[in-house]
Simulated scan of single mutants.
Amino acid sequence: MNATVPGALRAAAPVHADPATAYIAANVFDRPTLVISRARVAAQYDRLKGGLGDAHIHYAVKANPAPQIIRTLVCKGSGFDAASRAEIELCLAQGADPSRISFGNTIKRASDIAFAHAAGVRLFAADSVAELDKIAAHAPGAKVYIRLIVENSLADWPLSRKFGCAAGMLPVLLDHARDLGLQAYGLSFHVGSQTRQAAFWNPVLDHVADLWHAARAAGHDLQLLNIGGGFPAYYGDAVEPPRAYAAAVRAAVDARFGPVPHLMAEPGRGLVAEAGHIAAEVMLVSRKSEDDLHRWIYLDIGRFSGLAETEGEAIRYQIVTRHDGTECGPCVLAGPSCDSADILYEKRPIQLPLALRDGDKVMIRNCGAYTSSYSSVGFNGFPPLDVIVL
């Protein structure tokens, strides 16, 4: 980062000013930089917790693994959803209690299961017989929850069939876990990323509730319902306030499941996205022909340096410029690398000011989730996303 330059983006600051916005406005950067506020993360945790009540929040570490954020959430009393040994080690290093860490990846190396168990982690996810066998061999007596496939997601970004078992497999897996000496502790699912309305959860909850009650009727004393993530962030389309959203989801869960001994949620995006913004720069503004209807605007950040979630144009980031309020026109937005896949928005061109020029500084809003963790080590020689935690 270069020296302070007051007012670099102040004229274009969003209506809802926050520490990250103010920091970007007061400084200039020589490379793409994510600036994220711990205070905003802590405040969002309080909002979600207020709506979810006595449900346990396990932050999805993959959303943003900055140690300062993990430490902030440890101090708030959060649990953690870890997907790897490295994420478990990160949480432990920041003071997390291993009893509040769940090993939520259903694809785990046997040695990592053994490491987690030795470190005190007792809660593991599975969605197959083979994974249960590994857990039983390397974490004997552990609590396991079975992840279910979600077929009827109304999320902006439904998740694939990579994770979870079909409904018909659930009785087999619960029985197998019990036969292995594991605690068949509960169920989990993920409603889909960026589920913008709380009501969109209802079809998924209806399906999972049927399976929950059937399993308990079959003699499985399920204790844990892990409702996963899906809590949204603001990217231009309206979303409900976080506390009200979380309260509506909690009410929908209570109506379908009744008292659940251990209710868990795993927000990632919904916790950290709005706490951070990216300082970036326009590298080139051009047209492909004299009569091209769309400009091409190339930023110094693209898919390989932090904006991977533009895949499929599902996440539509908002871009703040010093020319905001002037005449806009459609453009194709792309990254700087020599890879033809490094195009951010083309199917639905983005509207940006006609006055935008090479060298202009811009701010990409609400990028605290799934940017630094997706950034490459330096593809094509372009630097990975820098991170400043306030």
Rank of each mutant, 00 (worst) to 15 (best):
S193M: 05
S193H: 02
Q194K: 09
R196G: 01
R196L: 11
Q197N: 07
Q197T: 05
A198C: 02
A198L: 07
A198G: 07
A199L: 10
A199Y: 03
F200K: 00
W201G: 01
W201N: 00
N202I: 12
P203E: 01
D206W: 03
H207D: 10
H207P: 03
V208H: 01
V208C: 03
D210E: 14
D210W: 05
D210T: 08
H213I: 04
H213Q: 09
A214Q: 08
A214E: 04
A215R: 02
A215S: 07
A215P: 00
A215V: 00
R216P: 07
R216V: 02
G219W: 04
H220A: 04
D221T: 10
D221S: 11
L222Y: 04
Q223T: 12
L224D: 05
L225I: 08
L225K: 05
L225W: 06
I227Y: 03
I227S: 14
I227A: 13
I227P: 04
G228C: 15
G228E: 12
G229T: 05
G229C: 10
F231G: 01
F231I: 04
P232Y: 05
A233F: 08
A233M: 06
A233E: 02
Y234I: 09
Y235K: 14
G236S: 15
G236V: 07
D237N: 13
D237A: 15
A238N: 14
V239N: 06
E240P: 10
E240T: 13
P241E: 11
R243C: 12
R243I: 15
R243G: 09
A244Q: 15
A247R: 15
A247H: 15
A247E: 15
